[in-house]
Amino acid sequence: MARFISKTVPTLSSFERGLGLGLKDVRELSAFMSDVLGIPYDHMPVSFFKRRLTNVFAKNNIRNVEHFKELLTSGDIKENIYHDFSVSITEMFRDPGFWRYLRSLLQNLSPGKTFTVWFPDASSGEEVFSFLILIAELNMLDRIKVICQHPSSRITEDIRKGILRNKNAEVNANNYIRIEGNGNFKDYYSLQDNIFVLNTYLLQNVETVTGHFLNTAINEPAGLIMFRNKMIYYDKEVSEKGIKTLTGKLSPGGLIAIGGKEKMPESTMSSFKCINEKERVFKKHGFDISWNNGN
């Protein structure tokens, strides 16, 4: 078989080598972070934890693990960790088929029905703002209260102000075309200092809560919980705990949406019926909310 003799060229260090942490280091450090911050970092996939920690170190000019522990204990970088550990959603109307399906469900709700939609882990505004545009086009803005929650106050503040910091205008606009919206995407936002700012009227019924959803639950039942691509950042144990927590806050007959490649933990399935396998939408047993397409 052929062999190739190449010149030797220095290479970039890979993301896995970023901090030079072994598995034992990861376990110790993630447990330490969980103790200090009260968020289950020790239940995240190892590869994910290392990537995000590399991100935190880079953004905060942290020299080494000891320096990190020092800052963490002093509380100086708590907010930065909440912010830099989270994964932005990167595009509005991700999975256009999901949004078309959600619209069809909302269209069939009983006239006058009001309810709450909860985004328990709103790591950036894309998903929330997509939802707001969707309900604006259905003239439902005044019927739906939207609660967005995240441990980072910077993130919840951005959402409250309608700010998107990712510059994916073209992707967002193309996805909007794919959901077959009935307006002009550019009419929903303005650019202020080159930053996307959602029009204020869309945010009229939005509330923000700062805190992790496992520790700080909302006070009212939700008719719809948007939890797409959140379990992928936790192991089975915390995913199951998370879904059980959310189920407790979901109205009978309410819906929960998860990511297209996520599975509902088996132990929680007795509470739900899957109403759309492809778009991963589940309906909690009961009839307080009548989703006509999902009965």
Binding site: S47, R51, V87, S88, N229, I232
Partner: peptide, 20 residues
């Protein structure tokens, strides 16, 4: 899968990510 990064974990499972 499309639009997800795919990783292999130590417990011989896949993990997915929507990171940039």
């Amino acid at each position: 899968p499309s639009n997800y990064h795919l990783f292999i974990e130590f417990d011989n499972t896949f993990s997915l990510s929507t990171e940039s």
